[in-house]
């Protein structure tokens, strides 16, 4: 119950502050630009390339080997763009889950009324809801464009949407969990982002070092959040959910670390 209250507060906080509303407006403008100048022209290009047979040559080289299974070129391009853009968006929006509350002392008011773990999980859940809504909004915008262009493709795209939604939500979960963890250690969103970059680079270097020294440790390829993205590009439809355990495991591990630190950190 308290987790839900904290999560709801996290969502309402975004909608109640000027900073939150400006962030939303900024994202809407960026997304409109991405849609108008990125996704749609690319979709038109690939449609033309498909007719000329160019697609078979170009798209697999870009990693999108299963592109022909997508019901609409715009949806396929949306899929590729989202796989790279949404994690970035998640890192930026979820950087300040508990950091500024700690430095301001507001967290002290909360821990008198609910457990630290409830605050930690509640803030994480709230950010998941926010990113879920962002994904839903971006997906809806692409579907509207497809509907305007081809009602036939729209029906198939709509049927395809749940699996895209699930995949994209799963994709951003570990990034939000990573920011939940670093937010526990930081005193501001900026510091949290810096910590996330340090951790990311540190793990990347460590993985590279271990693989070069020990060799054959292919399991380390999956160590970082988003490591399944290159595989996802080669799959389509419900096949993509075969990779779902990877972000789920990442999320659980990152939440365990963050939750442990949240319980021990002085406020």
């Amino acid at each position: 119950m308290r987790v839900l209250l904290v999560a709801r507060d996290e969502v309402l906080r975004l909608l109640s502050t000027r900073r939150g509303l400006l962030a939303l407006l900024g994202f809407l403008l960026i997304w409109a630009a991405v849609l108008n100048y990125g996704i749609l022209p690319a979709a038109r290009f690939f449609t033309g390339a498909s007719e000329s047979g160019l697609s078979e040559l170009v798209l697999p080289r870009l990693g999108l080997s299963e592109w022909q299974h997508w019901p609409a070129p715009a949806l396929a391009v949306y899929w590729v763009v989202s796989l790279y853009l949404l994690p970035l968006m998640a890192l930026i929006t979820s950087a300040d889950q508990t950091a500024s509350e700690r430095s301001r002392g507001t967290l002290r008011f909360l821990v008198l009324r609910c457990s630290r773990l409830e605050i930690f999980i509640g803030r994480f859940a709230g950010q998941c809801v926010i990113m879920g809504l962002v994904i839903l909004a971006t997906l809806a915008s692409v579907l509207i464009v497809i509907l305007a262009q081809s009602p036939v493709q729209f029906a198939a795209s709509l049927a395809h949407s749940p699996v895209i939604l699930i995949n994209l939500v799963l994709l951003v979960l570990p990034y939000i969990a990573l920011m939940a963890w670093v937010s526990v250690m930081a005193r501001s969103a900026r510091q949290a982002t810096l910590y996330a970059v340090i951790i990311w680079l540190g793990v990347s270097l460590l993985v590279g070092f271990l693989q070069s020294r020990l060799g054959g440790l292919t399991i380390l390829d999956w160590a970082l959040p988003g490591s399944q993205v290159s595989q996802l590009l080669r799959l389509s439809g419900w096949q993509t959910l075969t990779l779902a355990p990877i972000p789920v495991i990442h999320t659980v591990v990152l939440l365990l670390i963050g939750g442990f630190l949240m319980g021990r950190r002085d406020l």
Partner: peptide, 10 residues
């Protein structure tokens, strides 16, 4: 708590 404040924006 000493110096603890509510969120100034809300």
């Amino acid at each position: 708590p000493q110096d603890a404040q509510l969120d100034p924006r809300l």
